[in-house]
Structures are given as C-alpha cells and as structure tokens.
C-alpha cells in the first residue's frame, strides 16, 4: 500500500474570505463606506458609536449592524442615534462572519447609504480571523485595560487599521500611561493611526468625526 501526498494549499476560512471579497466589491459598487469596530467587551464600542452616529447623522445617511451573543440592547441604543440599525444575535458564536453580514443586509439598499458601521461581538481574539468585507477596521482600547494589551493581543491589532483609545476622561483616575500604550500599539502595528476619545465628555470626538468624514471625502473625489 502506498501513500500519496495531495497538495491542497487552501485557506481553511476560504469560504468566509470569498464571501467577504464579494461583500467588499458590493460595498464599493454601492459607494458606501463600511467600518467595523472590535474590542474587548466593555471598551465602549456602543457608547462611541452612539455618539459618533449622532454627530454624523445630520450630514450623512447611516446604518449599523451590531453583533452580540444575546439581547437587542445595543441595537436599541444605537437606534437612538439613527433608525437603520439591525442586531445580529449569534447565540454562542464569538464573532461575526461574512455570511452573517450578508444575511443581515439582504433587504437593505446600500446605494442609499454613506456609512455602514459594524460593531463586532466584544472579543479581542476570534474576530481577527474573519474578514467582513469592511473598508476599515477600528480596534478600541480603553484606558482601564492596561497599556500592554496590544502586546497580549497582537493579532487583532495587526489586522486592524486604526486604534482608538477610549474613556480618556478616566485616564488620570486609571493612571493610564499614554506613551506606553502608544508604544505597545506601534510595536505590533508600526505606523498605525491612533485616535483618543471620550465619548462621554466629547473630548477628541471632533477629531474622530473629522477622521470618518474624510472617508466620504475620498469617495466623493472618485
């Protein structure tokens, strides 16, 4: 009996990657800027998005998808900022994937949107493996999580495009070492853009708003 070696060389998550590529193409054709947000649970994704969406809603047409294992709480909160929000409850699945996004968007007319924000399940591990077809991925890190968090979770920081330090109004109370955090971020993702905000007090939100608005300016120029 002989043994043959069959070369496969296939990405195990190929199915997700193929779907994500299709989504990315669809988003591009529709002219909608899609941004996803990942972080630990409790870093302030929903509060940040609530605040950002309220600020952008007067100028832009916005929709959001939010993933959680259970409850519709986050979708309800985001709907206060803008009505077109849909909750994806994953049950036991610890991350969103392209199939879930495609299913959630099925009846939406993407051409009518400027922004689609996707809030991932609170998890710094699993979302890193799943492309959602987004144009940009933002990883949030709050001032109470420890400056070395990026070093502990290099994969998620490496697959993100922008890091956002949140809850900066608590920085003094948490004895947050801003320079150490920035060093950690830049050592796992050299050149990464870093924003700093407090959604609660508004500090840094104008800069954040301008940053996201610049994505639309780039689209308008095409």
């Amino acid at each position: 009996m002989t043994t043959r070696l069959i070369e496969v060389r296939a990405n195990i998550l190929r199915e997700n990657d193929v779907l994500a590529r299709q989504l990315r193409e669809r988003f591009h054709q529709a002219g909608v800027s899609v941004v996803s947000f990942v972080s630990s649970p409790g870093s302030g994704k929903t509060t940040f998005l609530e605040t950002l969406m309220a600020r952008l809603a007067s100028r832009y047409r916005i929709a959001a998808l939010v993933g959680d294992l259970a409850t519709e709480n986050d979708a309800t909160r985001l709907q206060r900022a803008c009505p077109q929000v849909r909750q994806i409850t994953t049950g036991t699945v610890c991350h969103l994937d392209a199939k879930m996004i495609a299913a959630a968007l099925e009846d939406w007319t993407l051409e009518d949107l400027d922004f689609l924000f996707i809030e991932n399940v609170g998890n710094l591990v699993c979302p890193s493996s799943y492309d959602l077809g987004e144009q940009m991925r933002v990883v949030l890190l709050s001032v109470t999580e420890g400056e070395d968090k990026p070093l502990k979770y290099p994969t998620i920081f490496n697959t993100a495009d922008v890091a956002m330090i949140t809850k900066i109004d608590l920085a003094a109370a948490a004895e947050f070492d801003r320079e150490a955090a920035r060093r950690s971020i830049l050592s796992v993702r050299p050149g990464m853009k870093i924003l700093e905000v407090s959604a609660k007090t508004g500090l840094g939100m104008e800069g954040a708003e301008a940053f996201f608005a610049s994505l639309r300016a780039a689209v308008a120029r095409l």
């Binding site: 050592s187 796992v188 050299p190």
Partner: peptide
C-alpha cells in the same frame, strides 16, 4: 514587526498569517 535596519513602519507580512490546509496523505 520592524526591519532591524530601517525601523520603517508599514512592513509587508509575507508569512505568519496562514490558516491553511496544505496537503493530505491518502
């Protein structure tokens, strides 16, 4: 993730992200 010589950001990752079914022995 830095070049030891140039310390330049935006390094291109050639290997290290794989999640690949490489082959089967049948």
């Amino acid at each position: 993730i830095l070049c030891p010589r140039c310390v330049t950001p935006e390094q291109q990752i050639l290997e290290g992200r794989e999640l690949q079914l490489a082959s089967l022995e049948i």
